[in-house]
Design a binder for these strands. Structure first.
Lengths: 189, 189, 189, 189
DNA sequence: AATGAATGAGCTTTCATTCAT
DNA sequence: CATGAATGAAAGCTCATTCAT
């Protein structure tokens, strides 16, 4: 990897850490540069402005996240198995990467990311999209708007992981499976 | 209502609106004052500082919200009925007051409000708390940590209302009842 | 004494106390009003603005101070006796009224009071003025500019009292007499 | 000298000038920046906050002042000679640098500098300290508390220079020697 | 390519003063 | 006469962005 890529990566990493730990407020460019071990000006060689830096960071995290989640995914398996697979992997990934989770949370709740969120959920590439559609057709999943089903799946997920990361609700594999089960109960016909 | 109360109210209203619409960033004191039709200094006659203004706003909204939600609540009714009652009222209130919803969302996701959130959820006064405890004892509700059950209830709620307010998922009474039903399925044994 | 005079006096007293204890910075009009038990606006009924309030306070303190100092002063007594009399009384007064001393210090060191200081020292009414003039004529006091002699007298006085008030150099009658003696040595031929 | 040092120096100089001429009140950061020919933000690159700027300014002036005063000082010379040497140099320095004198005056009379003052006067490095101690031991100097002797020396000095700077008492070498003589008479046994 | 010194708009907060009651 | 709510100019300080090196 070139020196260039090193700096770029260092900047992205520093941004992730600072925003995750201290919010957007706690991540001035000067601090990002310092933590990344580069000059402030350097940030602007790799990213047009702070906004672009943040969007780029999101895109890269998203890609990594998706790659992990899709590992071993059987596109043609039974609905319920695929649902469990996806959910388990998401929980696993987010619990293993609390910094990324904190960042994503902030990102989606900020003016930066609301548009991105929608776009993502509605994209055909989104595996849950196909899953739920099929499930509804097969009469396994409740016949509700997809966005509503998304809410039933991701809503609990976000809350529960937040509580885990803040130490209030320590999760383990059993508990995670129980939430997924409950989520399935929610969307299942 | 006195002139005084007018100004205080105007400031709170302006704050609600600006934070709901543009986030904490988009609500500098100068703009709050302008929107409220008062001088900047006036804000500081009614609130020690910006932080107190925001906390006060939260407290007032919270009180109004709770009063609405508890209307006609039968503390000794059947679990399921009480669950529906609370959920329906919360949905109704938040859908009727999108500004308040946006504000509360921001508030709880900010360093301002995380503590408040916990405190609130764990308080004995929180009607859901008693409800879920009873439900678990009676074997009607899944035997999961209360915080986890909260996640299953409020997670979908937040997501779904957010989507409604952004125009992506127009809700109506039928749809709301369907989400509540799904939520019940999630927590029910 | 009328109600009016009461308020005026209360305002002046509060001003003295606050400025002496916390400096000009620590004496906003709102706090003066509060301590005086009057409304803020009331201050402006008795004094054109804050500046006038402070100047008036100075004038009143000055008059009281002078009255005390001149008690029992023999205008035609021997130079040395008159010198001791004046010095002793000034020390006595300022040590007994630390608040006034603190205020006067601040006053003279601020843009408010430099002019007043000069004016006072040069005024014919100033008893030291006549004293030193005579002393010089009689060949008892060094033939130096009066202002310089003032410096030799008041300079040590201010320093020594400041140190006393701050607890670093506790004074007593003996010590005070020794300073006066030293001051006399300084100006004596 | 580098650009950097230029700006730092310009800021310090502007601060000195403004505080000397208009007091702490008359030296807002905006005005300091303007007078220094830099942006406001630049001040904060060199100094953490305004307080640090002022303390630093003091330290630098103090160092320069001390270096000047100690030139040619014979630590083992006769008490009287050393006394004259120190006094003459202090007068010379302060008369040649009226801005610094005004600044130091304000500094010591403000909450910023009272502690510094004490610390300085009591430090073993303070040459007057040793001088007076010795003088007392040898029976040349009056047996009075050192702080009181300091008052007798610095009190007149401050007053007299103040009067000189304000144009009321133009000093020259002869006059200065006469004050020092008078000061010596004050502390001498 | 990389730097970081320099910038100034914009933030929150204070306070002397006014004026309707 | 007396009040204190209302005001806004001005304070100290931060930070995204630029640009000479």
């Amino acid at each position: 990897m070139s020196r260039q890529a090193d700096k770029r990566t260092a900047i992205l990493r520093a941004t992730l850490k600072l925003i995750a730990e201290h919010g957007f407020h706690g991540a001035p460019t000067s601090m990002i540069a310092e933590r990344a071990g580069v000059g402030v000006g350097t940030i602007y060689r790799y990213f047009r402005d702070k906004e672009e830096l943040i969007h780029t960071l999101y895109e890269e995290l998203e890609a990594r996240h998706r790659a992990f989640v899709m590992q071993g995914y059987e596109e043609n398996g039974p609905i319920r198995d695929r649902f469990y697979h996806l959910c388990r992997n998401i929980y696993r990934y987010l619990l293993a990467n609390p910094l990324e989770f904190r960042f994503l949370e902030q990102y989606f709740d900020s003016p930066y990311g609301v548009a991105k969120m929608r776009q993502k959920l509605e994209s055909a590439g989104e595996p849950f999209h196909a899953l739920l559609k099929e499930g509804k057709q097969q009469g396994i999943v409740k016949d509700l708007p997809t966005l509503l089903l998304f809410g039933l799946i991701f809503g609990p997920m976000i809350n529960v992981i937040k509580d885990h990361d803040s130490g209030l609700l320590p999760l383990n594999d059993v508990l995670v499976d129980q939430v997924i089960r409950a989520t399935w109960d929610a969307i299942q016909r």
